[in-house]
Design a protein around this nucleic acid. Structure first.
Length: 268
DNA sequence: GCCTTATGTTCAC
DNA sequence: TGAACCTAAGGCT
């Protein structure tokens, strides 16, 4: 489930499991073998996330992981079992181990390379050092839609297709509205809402965006779980009745990703 | 068992 | 704009 909340959750977990301990690092699949050999036995100082990027910090360098669409970590207890399938990176610490499969990136970087990578990312609602004003500056300078801007990791880091659809619904904003037309006040409200929603996602481990008064139980409908594991207003609900007004949810493809919105609740 | 789809990004054209 | 990356889950047969 790789939107920003999932990466922050992983960073926290890896910190607990491996932080401050020497770890065995290997690459059963071989594609990370050289770096793994270099790091094997080193102390994992800490793990942290910025947007959808995960970093494992060692004295010798930092492992940068991006899960992409398919990547996933799977934990296993000790003693470690034989790796199954294509395992790019295996970490084994004193309390257990984890296997990384199918990431889009798993590479050992220098501090300069990490700085340059992070310099290309916008502020992350889940980081204490994030400045929403920085995102607003970008939005103001662009003529593109708020839907496209929310997914642009240079504008802000960590929001994916689910949080995009849901935050726009929660604020009644038509997705094609040019971002700059929202105004700074409304942008701040959106940002604050993302901070809250995503922090909740880190806590719970899934994306829940439906307000208590709109939950199925409160609306007299049976409880429901979406495929991503939480409860949402519009994401992946094309054609289904809007949870608030009953209008069928609209969908459309925007630069290769599906957009979902309620044409009535988000009429502007 | 096969086909489609997906919470993402990069690169080639 | 489309393909590639490379994996899992769900729907269908």
């Amino acid at each position: 489930m790789p939107e920003g909340h999932a990466l922050h959750r992983l960073a926290r977990r890896h910190d607990e499991q491996f932080g401050g301990h020497p770890v065995r690092v290997s690459s059963p699949q071989g594609r990370f073998a050289a770096a793994a050999a270099e790091l094997d036995g080193a102390v994992l100082e800490r793990a942290e996330a910025h947007g959808k990027h995960l970093f494992h910090v060692y004295a010798a360098g930092t492992v940068h992981v991006h899960l992409g669409l398919y990547g996933a970590f799977t934990e296993f207890p000790l003693p470690a079992e034989e790796p199954r399938g294509q395992v790019r990176m295996r970490l084994v610490g004193p309390r257990g181990g984890t296997d990384l499969r199918g990431p889009i990136a798993c590479e050992l970087l220098t501090q300069d390379e990490v700085d340059s990578l992070r310099g290309r990312l916008g502020p992350d609602p889940l980081r204490a050092d994030a400045d929403p004003e920085q995102a607003w500056q970008r939005i103001q300078r662009s003529r593109t839609s708020i839907a496209a801007l929310l997914m642009d990791q240079k504008v802000l880091a960590g929001v994916g297709n689910v949080y995009r659809a849901e935050v726009l619904f929660r604020h009644g904003i038509p997705p094609h509205t040019p971002g700059r037309e929202l105004g700074e006040q409304l942008w701040k409200l959106i940002w604050d809402d993302l901070v809250e929603l995503m922090a909740d996602g880190v806590r719970v481990g899934r994306i829940d965006t439906v307000r208590p008064e709109h939950e199925p139980e409160a609306m007299g409908r049976p409880a429901r779980e979406d495929r991503h594991g939480g409860e949402v207003y519009v994401y992946r609900r094309a054609g289904a009745p809007c949870l608030v007004c009953g209008t069928p949810v609209s969908t459309e493809e925007l630069s290769g990703r599906k957009l979902y919105w309620c044409p009535v609740c988000q009429a502007g």
